[in-house]
Write a protein that binds this DNA or RNA. Structure first.
Lengths: 195, 195
DNA sequence: GTCTATAGGGAGATAGAC
DNA sequence: GTCTATCTCCCTATAGAC
């Protein structure tokens, strides 16, 4: 929660770690940096986590938990399927920019995780992907074998925002979510200039 | 070019480095690993490159060069603008999966590059992005402030394929390029199941 | 739950012979 | 252009006191 509290506890360490992993990646981050950000000494990290890899796995886990929670919180809004998709796109973007550094760390660092860590996370990750497949099946009418591909393209668009979107800039997260959703469903051609 | 040649030379080292950076990221890759893959000793790397960062910058440079070359090679095909976009999407995917490891290394590792390296590369990268903005302006009719955003979404979709697409799987690169282009231009809703 | 002290290893890089 | 040998630094992790 804080960077300088006297006893940050497990969660404080976890959050400082996630922030570093986002900024530098896993390998480039040292336990000493995480400790310094947390306001404790490096050796104290090992009271909360057995190893740096263990800490990394905990960050990835929390990243998924935040995503799944946000997805479930959108709930079964009884609107059109297009608006339901928009709500979930907005929620996913929210996890990247508004709900702490965990999901961002997951998205940017998962790919570079050591194989053992990655295998440990995959089952949880699958649950989130299944939720999206179900959602998309209710929204678009593509062939069954195309649907996971379209989901991956949408994920690619959404997750790439972590590399370039500035939540304090001209475009708001709401606007970005609307743009991504409309582009995904109706295509870039539908966005006529003469609006 | 080869992993075990007696004198791999600068290019062999560069290629081995790119492969490692794709697989492990920059920080997790050691100069000793690159040397071993190249068939030389670690100290010999420093005959070709002043430092590991220097080698990294050379890999990123080459990654852009490959992208720009592929873009230019598509040329001014006098087809419809949709088909021209398809050709460029196919060319970009080709740089990720068919033209060596340099572009893949650029896409996956650029974000984690040390600030000095990144700043050195940005101007070259800008040239590639300008080419795409120009291409998209001829293809879609979106508002001027939306166009760069739409390009970033398309880049996000295309570049994410490096994390999940298997060029030896069921779907070919040609099919993937067609799917991405059609989804980008016309949206996922246009892909009706009853085809 | 945090500290000091330190073990043990591997990293990037250099010197100088061939 | 590549080698062997080595420097120096900093990494993860442990031991044991408070």
């Amino acid at each position: 929660m804080s960077l300088t509290a006297e006893a940050p506890g497990r969660h404080g360490v976890l959050e400082a770690a996630a922030r570093r992993f986002v900024a530098q990646g896993y390998a480039a981050t040292t336990v000493r940096q995480i400790a310094e950000d947390s306001g404790i000494k490096a050796a104290s990290i090992y009271h909360h986590f057995a190893s740096k890899e263990d800490l990394f796995a905990a960050v990835l886990d929390e990243g998924i938990r935040v995503m799944v929670d946000a997805f479930e919180e959108v709930g079964l809004v009884a609107q059109s399927s297009d608006l339901r998709l928009l709500a979930h796109v907005r929620a996913h973007l929210g996890t990247l920019f508004e709900h702490g550094p965990f999901t961002a760390a997951h998205v940017t660092a998962f790919f570079t995780a050591p194989a053992e860590v990655r295998e440990r996370i995959v089952p949880v990750r699958d649950g989130y992907e299944r939720r999206w497949n179900r959602l998309l099946r209710e929204t678009i009418d593509a062939a069954n074998r195309e649907l996971p591909l379209l989901r991956l393209l949408l994920f690619g668009s959404m997750n790439s925002t972590i590399e370039w979107f500035d939540p304090d800039g001209e475009t708001s997260l709401d606007q970005l979510a609307a743009l991504i959703t409309d582009q995904f469903l109706n295509g870039a051609k539908s966005r006529k200039k003469g609006a």
